[in-house]
Amino acid sequence: MLQSNMPLFQAAFWSVLTIGLYALGKALYRRKSCMLSSPLFITPVLLIVAALLFHVSYAQYIRGTHWLVALLGPATVAFAVPIYEQRALICRHWGLLVVGVVAGSATAVVSSWELSNLLGLNDSLRLSLLPRSMSTPFAMAVSGDIGGAPGLTAVFVVLTGVLGAALGEGLINYLPLRSVFSRGALLGMGAHGAGTAKAHQIDQEVGAIAGLVMVLVGLFNVLATPVLVYCLGMTGK
């Protein structure tokens, strides 16, 4: 049924299945909100099961659905609107955002490195795991710069976003946080795009801050991570 000599049919089939399962996940989540029924969890799991059933590889799957991933580009551009609408709030407290981005980025590199060391992961994995807390295009650039494998990094970034969005939602309820800044930065820093999308669902202000933090984290890390890695003497050991 799903032979590779029918690329158009394959592309249509997997696109429709992906969108359909996402819609199903969303409907389910509206009825019962928990981590397992989140569309970011249930949809990929069901798709992996389908791919295994039909003996379809990732290359075959992504050939037909790449256009959906490409829409992350304009979705990132769309964050200009909430950032613009919250500009007064952001201008008044820009110092807090700088604190969050610098503290978060440093913690991201150090925690990732120490945890990988602790669990005895090899160099390539350790370096690929480092640039995780930023959106994919930034992360892949940094990964290449510091000697990781950009392809692996892309997988880790997406997993971080997916898991982070769910973890962050729980953490926000658990931590005694007062300002919208800490809540927005928590999601934008920890889980980049997926976290920002989650933040946007929680609240307009939180979403705008998460979006801005995501952008700042990306810009800051492209410049700072290679320097930090060099300073800590992480490469070549």
Partner: peptide, 20 residues
């Protein structure tokens, strides 16, 4: 913009299948 932001999670889904 609201449309993109509301459906943004969908755009992440296909990339997760890279674990295959």
């Amino acid at each position: 913009a609201e449309w993109y932001l509301a459906e943004m999670l969908l755009f992440f889904v296909p990339a997760v299948l890279a674990v295959l």
